[in-house]
Nucleic acid binder design. Structure first.
Lengths: 146, 146
DNA sequence: CCTTTATTCCCCACTATTCCCCACCAACCG
DNA sequence: CGGTTGGTGGGGAATAGTGGGGAATAAAGG
């Protein structure tokens, strides 16, 4: 569990500081500061501890036949963009121009927590996403959990 | 059960004192002064004892399929913003700028009690919420719980 | 194949923020 | 009227975030 949201800045060299609480989690829980950085189809960049990547992302691919349409798209779009990064001494990683472009990242960016991974968003896109989330959450309750 | 409403102030550093009765409840009933602070889609900030968070909030997420729309929105909106805070020696916690902005919190804020959690409101938004509550409560009764 | 140019990576230094602690004030209770 | 408890404000130390310089590496061109 990566907790909280953090606003950080992307410098001229394309680097971002991974928020200290996330680094703490990477160190304590995974004993590995590296992260797998990849394209996400929500329009952001997703970051996984390598252990989580292998545990929960790769099986999504290998669990399907090699001619499965969804698998081929996922493999191409997500896995195809994945790079394992090691943070520098200040806890930063560089985001490639390709990924920056994909997620429309400019100077002000936002990290958002999640279970087993976290994400990197452009401020405006994140706001739009929250707005859509709100509409879904405020709509009449769905059927209770079975 | 967290009882009562309390008016407190948010200082320049974004800190609020958790009302003493709530702290007393956290200590006696949960033996843990920490609270999970998160965005709430009613427009306020919700605070849960960690035990309650795991008992009643997280199952709402994990009880649903990962591609469920409501689950994805809830995970992004609520869980994505959650941070576990430990009160300082004076019983205060810091509310991040993001959460303050979300709930429109200024200097005067209100804590409201609840079952298993409590909330932090802006005065005006709280008044509006009470008004809406009234309308719901005065409307024709729904069918009894099965 | 060597030279030149561009890029990446690493490290240092500055600034801003956070956290922790101490002190004051006000209200309530004995 | 004094003591105790809860709320509020502020100072100082530690930590995190940011920007930039320089070395090493890789790429391109002669």
């Amino acid at each position: 569990m990566f907790e909280g949201e953090y606003s950080v800045s992307l410098d001229d060299k394309g680097r971002v500081s991974i928020p200290a609480p996330y680094r703490e989690q990477l160190r304590r829980r995974y004993d590995d500061l590296r992260v797998v950085v990849c394209r996400d189809y929500d329009g952001c960049v997703s970051l996984y501890p390598p252990a989580e990547w292998e545990r929960s992302v790769l099986p999504e691919v290998y669990g399907r036949p090699i001619n499965d349409q969804w698998r081929r798209a996922f493999e191409s779009f997500v896995v195809g963009s994945a790079v394992t990064c090691t943070p520098d001494k200040q806890g930063r990683i560089a985001i490639s121009a390709t990924l920056r472009q994909h997620a429309n990242l400019s100077k002000k960016v936002i990290f958002t927590g999640g279970v087993g991974h976290f994400q990197l968003w452009d401020v405006a896109l994140r706001d739009a996403k929250l707005q859509r989330d709100l509409e879904i959450l405020r709509a009449p309750q769905p059927a209770p959990v079975a």
